[in-house]
């Protein structure tokens, strides 16, 4: 979980940087170039990474679910009163829930962007698709909520990955913990900025 998780982290960073191109007030020029480079069928290394990405994602999700099931069984009966908030963070206890919502989000997200622009024959550019999608408040808000849950997920995930890898020391662990929180929130805030931007700030871009 830790290794796949950290890999997905790297992907998120890359994805965010690309997404921020959307905010460049150039009517999507930069973003379109990026999308084309990324989508080029001849970019073999990228295709390999992409394949790995899907594999890791699926592994992360299925293994997470498997763990959740075995761990639930290991607990058996649950307590009548359980003040878990006194001994652990909210985020750490709800990884499967936040993860599941993110997974559903990803399915929809991939359907509207990846499947449409890469596997089908689109009649618009990806930039136009983004703008169009975010004009729909329902879609935008779903996106924002998913990002909030992603933040929940990442806040625990970041430091947990280091712990799982045995990288814990009183010298650097406090740094990892606080860095993880700030970093995770920044990433998700960055993503959420896109729908907010198109919904409330620049809602004329595509027309």
């Amino acid at each position: 979980m830790a290794l796949t998780g950290l890999f997905l982290y790297i992907f998120l960073i890359e994805h965010l940087i690309a997404n921020l191109l959307l905010l460049n007030n150039d009517n999507g020029e930069a973003y379109t170039i990026y999308a084309e480079v990324l989508g080029s069928a001849y970019n073999i290394p990228l295709r390999i990474i992409e394949f790995g990405l899907f594999f890791f994602l699926l592994y992360h999700a299925t293994n997470g679910t498997r763990l959740w099931i075995t761990n639930r069984n290991a607990k058996g009966i649950h307590y009548f009163v359980n003040r878990a908030s006194e001994n652990s963070t909210f985020f750490s206890r709800f990884m499967i829930q936040s993860g599941s919502v993110i997974f559903i989000f990803l399915v929809i997200h991939l359907r509207s962007f990846f499947v449409h622009y890469r596997l089908e024959t689109p009649d618009d550019t990806m930039y136009q698709g983004v703008v169009k999608a975010f004009e729909n408040p329902l879609y935008s808000w779903f996106y924002i909520i998913a990002m909030i849950l992603l933040a929940f997920h990442l806040v625990h995930a970041f430091q947990s990955a280091f712990q799982t890898l045995g990288l814990r020391h009183n010298k650097y662990t406090p740094f990892i913990k606080s860095f993880g929180v700030i970093f995770s929130i920044l990433i998700c805030a960055g993503f959420a900025l896109i729908p907010v931007y198109f919904l409330y700030i620049n809602n004329t871009g595509g027309h």
């Binding site: 761990n71 290991a74 878990a84 001994n87 652990s88 799982t164």
Partner: peptide
């Protein structure tokens, strides 16, 4: 023995 695996919630150490 049927114990679960660690997901680093840190509840054990806290209690």
């Amino acid at each position: 023995e049927g114990f679960g695996s660690c997901t680093n919630t840190e509840a054990c150490s806290a209690e």
